[in-house]
Simulated assay, not measured.
Amino acid sequence: MNNSHLELLKKLADEFQPRTDVNTRATVEAESTDAFATLVDLARDMQNRLDQQQNRIRQLEQMVETDELTGLYNRRGFLRRVRETMARAARHPENGILVIADLDGFKLINDHHGHAAGDAILRHFGQNLRTHTRADDFVARFGGDEFAILLVGSIPEVAERRISDLEKATSRFPLIWQGAALPIRASFGFTVYNGKSDITQLLQQADDAMYANKHAKRPHSESSHNAA
């Protein structure tokens, strides 16, 4: 077969080769790319929606576990943190301190200056507790004029010094209310926890210690009604 015959065969082969192969392949590739991009966009949109829902859930949980007046944990939120801390202490042996604090003479403040002043006292005291505790500690308004603090990883000797510092800090910063300085005093009680502790018993022990300190500070002639 001479060269002229070869040239003729090449021309025939080119003539019968489907002309749409390249275009078709390009079209399929473009559609595949578009489909993939669409899937990526959908996945991103779903992730964004999921993130928004999770953020909303966290916000709702925070609202449920936060005391509206002071911005601290409420009883529910605090007990959740206590349970989490106890579980961690059970896995990695660790002691800590549970503190209960109760304002002294709070009823007199409410009676003499009104509930708005009482609310301001609670906010002021709560802020002092938060300011003078570590970021790893948990502070809560437990109800009424009672507060709770979890000193994570602390020991009694250190806790006594820290509670003494809290008492001093509280008394050093009275609340200025309508031109008058309202003194803020509180009684503290604490107990030691570990991974095997019972939360109900811990709360009772800290509460008993707090009331023992409160009664020890009262003049003998002062009634428990007026000192509450």
Rank of each mutant, 00 (worst) to 15 (best):
R185C: 09
L12W: 13
Q17F: 12
L8Y: 07
D208A: 08
D136S: 10
L72H: 05
E94F: 00
A30M: 05
E7N: 12
S154M: 05
P156V: 02
K214Q: 08
V158G: 00
A13T: 13
T38E: 15
N213T: 03
A37S: 14
S4T: 13
H5W: 14
D45R: 14
G71Y: 10
A206Q: 01
A140H: 02
G179D: 14
E160T: 14
I57C: 08
R162Q: 11
H5A: 15
H132K: 01
G153C: 08
I184D: 00
A90T: 08
I176K: 11
E29M: 09
N128T: 15
K11D: 11
L72Y: 04
N2M: 07
R49C: 13
A216Q: 11
F125C: 02
M86E: 03
D45F: 06
E15T: 13
Q47N: 15
R83P: 02
R123P: 01
A37C: 06
I149Y: 03
E68K: 09
E160P: 00
V152Q: 04
T70D: 07
D136R: 10
Q53K: 14
V22H: 02
R19N: 07
A13V: 15
E157Q: 11
V192N: 00
Q47P: 03
H92R: 12
L8Q: 12
F190L: 06
P93G: 02
T27P: 01
G189P: 05
V152P: 00
G189A: 14
E84I: 06
M1S: 15
V82Q: 00
G144I: 10
A35K: 12
E31V: 13
T200V: 06
N95R: 13
A212W: 05
G77H: 00
K10T: 12
L129P: 05
S164Y: 02
F16Y: 09
A13I: 09
A140R: 02
R44F: 04
T27R: 12
S164F: 04
F138C: 01
D198E: 13
F78L: 03
A159R: 01
R58F: 07
A35Y: 08
V40N: 11
R76E: 00
S4M: 13
V192R: 06
I121K: 02
N48W: 04
E7P: 01
R218L: 13
V152M: 03
T133Y: 05
